[in-house]
Nucleic acid binder design. Structure first.
Lengths: 124, 124
DNA sequence: TCTATATATTGCAATATTCGAATATATAAT
DNA sequence: ATTATATATTCGAATATTGCAATATATAGA
């Protein structure tokens, strides 16, 4: 049976459930990493693997979560699958999120430095 | 012991973990509902309760998650606690998300109608 | 066909989240 | 001190997610 996005009180609307599952799709460190790459350019699984330094099954697994939630789409080119973000607005979403983190992280200097190092979508 | 935001491969950076836990904080239907209210105006727990039609402990519980993740803050006024969104950008984030949902939902007419009905931040 | 390469899926134990019920705390009024 | 009201926390069973290992599939070339 189709796994429900979230078990939750039925007093809460379908729309909220839908929105929540979208955010849930982003709510994983590896998936964030993947998206930050894909927002810049289309990439194959291999490229993601080496860009992130992760094992292939882990990457495929998390790609599958993003695919299921319609955040990304993949097109097959022979034996290679190239993934891309489905909606350019996802880039904007990550930008706004980054701005929020920036305000929020005052204090933890390490993370702040890392955050600032991230170029603000130079390509695209 | 401080609960870790996410159990995850240590090959993934602290910053990604941090970002993921922010999105995780939004990744719940009730919490989305709460935020959509708070983005418009500061509200007490009671007001949220009746606006959303939820039990008090559930609301307090989810408020606590949002508080812990620094998404909202509450100030005490006597016996009443009024909550507000910590960063105005959260409103922008929800707006971008709404735009993405809007693009994504072509097909499921019911949800689409509901989504469009939501006024685009009339106050604030 | 056999092999190599790229990607996807499955199984499962460990861990985390959820939500409702019960209970706790804090403030104000009588 | 008692009561009432507003909010917060704790407990626990049901459920969901995670991550690793193993395995599966699909395509291309020899």
């Amino acid at each position: 049976m189709m796994p429900r996005a979230t078990a939750c009180p039925d007093v809460v609307g379908d729309l909220q459930v839908f929105k929540a599952s979208f955010f849930k799709a982003l709510a994983h460190p590896v998936r964030i990493g993947i998206l930050e790459e894909l927002v810049r350019r289309e990439m194959s699984v291999q490229e993601l693997q080496s860009a992130l330094g992760l094992e292939q099954p882990l990457v495929s697994q998390q790609l599958s979560v993003l695919r299921t939630n319609n955040v990304i789409a993949g097109r097959k080119e022979g034996v290679i699958v190239r993934y891309r973000v489905r909606d350019r607005l996802v880039g904007d979403l990550l930008d706004v999120a980054r701005a929020i983190f920036n305000n929020q992280l005052t204090g933890t200097q390490d993370l702040l430095k890392q955050l600032r190092k991230q170029s603000r979508r130079p390509l695209s």
